[in-house]
Computed example of a mutant assay.
Amino acid sequence: MKLFRMAAVLAVLAGPAYAQMPNINLMQDAPSKSPEEKAADAEREKVYKETLKKIPDAKSSNDPWGGMRSDPPKQAAPKASAATTSAPKKTKTGTAAN
């Protein structure tokens, strides 16, 4: 019975250590490419990069909430100083009672 308990303890302690070991695969998964396949891949990559250069740069908006609004943002109101200079000044009329 003690032997079974010791084996169980060792199995529990070895689990995390086994999980930390790197996965090394010494076998090659697929055969290497032939020179024709390498040339075709290089040509395909060249065409892809040329196509990417033809795409124009999109001007992105700096407004992260732009899609949430239903109407465009409002412009700032003009200064109030122009409105106060054109309005006539009102003066009090009458006498003060002492």
Rank of each mutant, 00 (worst) to 15 (best):
K2G: 13
L3H: 12
L3P: 01
F4Q: 13
R5Q: 10
R5E: 12
R5K: 08
M6L: 15
A7D: 09
A7F: 07
A8E: 09
L10E: 08
V12M: 14
A14C: 08
P16K: 05
P16L: 05
A17S: 07
Y18F: 11
A19M: 12
A19W: 04
M21G: 08
P22G: 04
P22A: 07
P22L: 05
N23P: 00
I24P: 01
I24Y: 11
N25E: 14
L26Y: 02
L26A: 08
M27N: 12
M27I: 05
M27W: 04
Q28Y: 02
A30K: 05
S32L: 12
K33A: 15
S34T: 15
S34H: 01
S34I: 01
S34F: 01
P35Y: 07
P35S: 12
E36D: 14
K38P: 01
K38I: 14
K38M: 15
A39F: 03
A39M: 11
A40E: 15
D41L: 10
A42K: 10
E43A: 15
R44G: 05
R44M: 10
R44V: 02
K46S: 12
V47T: 03
K49H: 06
E50Y: 01
E50A: 14
E50C: 01
T51N: 12
T51R: 10
L52Y: 00
L52E: 15
L52H: 01
K53E: 15
K54Y: 00
I55M: 12
P56F: 01
A58P: 00
K59R: 06
K59T: 06
K59H: 02
S61D: 15
S61T: 14
N62A: 08
D63E: 11
P64V: 07
G66T: 05
M68G: 00
S70D: 13
S70V: 02
D71S: 12
P72T: 05
P73M: 09
P73L: 12
Q75W: 00
Q75E: 14
A76R: 06
A77M: 07
P78T: 10
P78I: 07
S81I: 00
A82S: 10
T84Q: 09
S86H: 00
S86W: 00
A87R: 07
K89F: 02
K89G: 05
K90Y: 03
K90Q: 10
K90A: 11
K90E: 11
T91S: 10
T91I: 05
K92T: 08
K92D: 12
G94E: 10
T95Y: 11
T95Q: 14
A96C: 08
A96K: 07
A96Q: 07
A96F: 06
A96W: 04
N98T: 11
